[in-house]
Design a protein around this nucleic acid. Structure first.
Lengths: 216, 216
DNA sequence: GAGTGTGAATGTATTCACAGCA
DNA sequence: TGCTGTGAATACATTCACACTC
């Protein structure tokens, strides 16, 4: 039996397809071309992406929305609740704790950690906050496998290290610091400043080459 | 003279190199291999990335940190101040307005927009807030070219449309909605839920020896 | 006819191997 | 010798063209 290769990028886009599908409860089925329109991409890419994971459509008809949603959810592992530990209960951390979008999608920030005495022992956005030294114990006890880092840059790496020795397998790092992790940990940098810096590069380079394709 | 091709991904990584370099004011020069260690990548990749944009090192010695920093800043267009318009002054929007990292890197959220009467006319985190109908006028007058969207999902697309007709060229969308934009606009989705969904996929499909810290 | 599904072709990014310079 | 810089090779991702099915 041959292993199917499922490109990373296709998997990443599944999450976006899912988001589009959720907004389409009205209709029963949808064509790849139409789904693509909502995403600003091409029909063939949608079909190819989906084909890496199975055959979900019917020829001549399209994809059943409900069924496709369910299938993608399963592929991404969203058919259960995921618990999350958040390190750094500052402004951003607090905003994330109260973010309603997470719960809706099956993600649950279950504990927060912060060194600031005024926050320890309290509940913020109904999430209990502890001192970081208790991380390994609490995370293991609650079998949490995902972490978010919202601490200042200086504390980012040690926060990551603590999460990792606590057994965390995936980390979303919001702090403006490059963090390294062993290969068995999935680490994603969500660095706003870096995002902006990349955008400036694109603004500059688009405007340069755009003398020909100028519209508006 | 032949045009050099500079891969998108290399440009994206420049921003991370820059971040690492900034933390190294102590030493004068650095080798590609050592810089790579800080990033969790390989020396050859660092050299290749840099080579797309020019020759910044000296053989046998390495890269002068200060000079390389300056060069990368110039490539990314960070040798000036960039102003930003933010749409949606809720919790996340407010947190971003007060985020100190932006100013430090030459980014300046100059205006906010929100439909909520209680916010209009006020200054939040010393940023003035206006009603969205004034977007085209204000953004054009102030020559702002970057936008951030932190509104609820339902309002995301129309916020983007407004920014675009106001002349914005790059948008960072934090709202949990897939937004489309014409090709001359650089649109980046910073969707936390989607990030989490991608991570669950990787947790399930055990990352085999592969961990390039991937950005968004 | 109207759609999906997929091997083959093309394009892009990463890695290798080594030339070249201080 | 130590390190950068880069063409060539490889791996990966996207697009094309068309077979196939409802």
């Amino acid at each position: 039996m041959t292993e199917k290769k499922s490109p990373e990028n296709a998997a990443i886009r599944l999450s976006f397809y899912l988001r589009c599908l959720r907004k389409m409860k009205k209709e029963k089925s949808i064509s790849s071309e139409r789904l693509a329109q909502f995403m600003g991409t091409s029909g063939v890419r949608v079909r190819k992406d989906l084909s890496y994971f199975g055959q979900f459509g019917t020829r001549g008809k399209g994809y059943m929305i409900g069924e496709l949603q369910e299938q993608i959810s399963k592929i991404l592992g969203l058919d259960r609740v995921w618990t999350i530990a958040l390190v750094g209960v500052g402004k951003l951390g607090t905003a994330l704790m109260g973010y309603p979008g997470f719960r809706k999608s099956g993600f649950h920030i279950k504990v927060g950690f912060d060194v600031k005495p005024s926050k320890i022992g309290r509940k913020i956005a109904s999430v209990p906050v502890y001192h970081p030294y208790r991380m390994p114990t609490i995370i293991r006890a609650q079998k949490i496998r995902m972490g978010m880092i919202t601490v200042p840059a200086e504390a980012a790496q040690e926060s990551a290290d603590l999460l990792i020795i606590s057994g965390i397998r995936a980390i979303l790092n919001f702090s403006p610091a490059v963090v390294v992790a062993p290969s068995y940990v999935k680490l994603t940098q969500v660095d706003f400043t870096t995002q902006l810096e990349i955008m400036t590069y694109f603004i500059i380079n688009r405007t340069k080459e755009k003398t020909q394709t100028k519209l508006l």
